[in-house]
Design a protein around this nucleic acid. Structure first.
Lengths: 150, 150
DNA sequence: GCAGTAAATAGTAATTATTACTAAATTGAG
DNA sequence: CTCAATTTAGTAATAATTACTATTTACTGC
């Protein structure tokens, strides 16, 4: 993907075209890793030494809102005493977590071989809990759990 | 589960029986939510006002290591430009993330109905990447990605 | 091309979850 | 009951992320 194509993409998404945004997006599509904000800034600083971490976070949020990227994270570690195999329903609005018991989900496997020595997996369903479905009841704006890719 | 049963459980796991541990575990098995450390301490403080957040984290770590609980979290938000439906392989040692493309995983659904309005889901496989499988190569001790339940 | 406006940037500071360190207290083994 | 090892709780440190804000920049309509 060329710089011109990136600019075109931004315009289509009604995002202002800035050198910082181009550099960040360009770096991200040319890496196979899933970079953190720190990793992004350390690469982008080679071209734009003055860029701030703040701008990186702001830009990533803009990209995610625009549906250009997704983020992989939950803050707040939550602890669960239930050790039966099960998975989770997570409310993207209030962060409430409910258990899901579903035999089919407990028997997933990869169809291809992988270099990883896999020890387990988790399935997390994202959505709105009963309470947060009522209009105006959204307890918490939560950028980080945005699920624009889903 | 009674307090006596909790004490018996701790002894079986060779954990010292302390009022703090009993209170924390007792609170956790009597809630359907997946509490955060903050939520745990605010409940437990009613019985043990002097308890410190430090002790809560230490105790949760002890419980997780003993296989009594599991934690749900990743720190460090990672960003991904690939918006094709896909899932992730996460190395619990060095935190490296790889993409998984597997049609079967893209068609999961819940067998029961739920109150949640589900918008999407993620599958995360945990294990050791090729590099971290070599003995002595474990880059980072990482308590938080412990996967004792898997 | 240019002026005006709204948004973006890059600082600095604040916040928040978690971890580190440590002296004093407590638990369990003998 | 004694003693050693662990646990506790306090203070401080860390680290990721967000808030605030003055200045700069990019796009819109002329």
């Amino acid at each position: 993907m060329t710089i011109a194509a990136i600019q075109k993409l931004f315009r289509e998404k009604r995002l202002k075209v800035t050198p910082q945004r181009c550099a960040i997006y360009n770096m991200m599509i040319h890496t196979q890793s899933h970079p953190t904000a720190e990793e992004i800034i350390s690469h982008v600083k080679q071209a734009l030494p003055m860029i701030s971490l703040n701008t990186v976070y702001y830009t990533l949020n803009v990209f995610e809102t625009a549906g250009l990227i997704m983020s992989i994270n939950n803050t707040h570690t939550r602890y669960d005493t239930n050790l039966e195999p099960h998975h989770h329903l997570i409310c993207v609005s209030c962060r409430k977590i409910e258990d899901v018991f579903d035999d089919a989900l407990n028997q997933l496997h990869l169809s291809q071989k992988s270099d990883f020595e896999i020890r387990g997996y988790r399935v997390e369903f994202y959505g709105h809990c009963l309470n947060c479905q009522k209009p105006g009841t959204s307890i918490r704006r939560n950028k980080r759990l945005a699920i624009t890719h889903l």
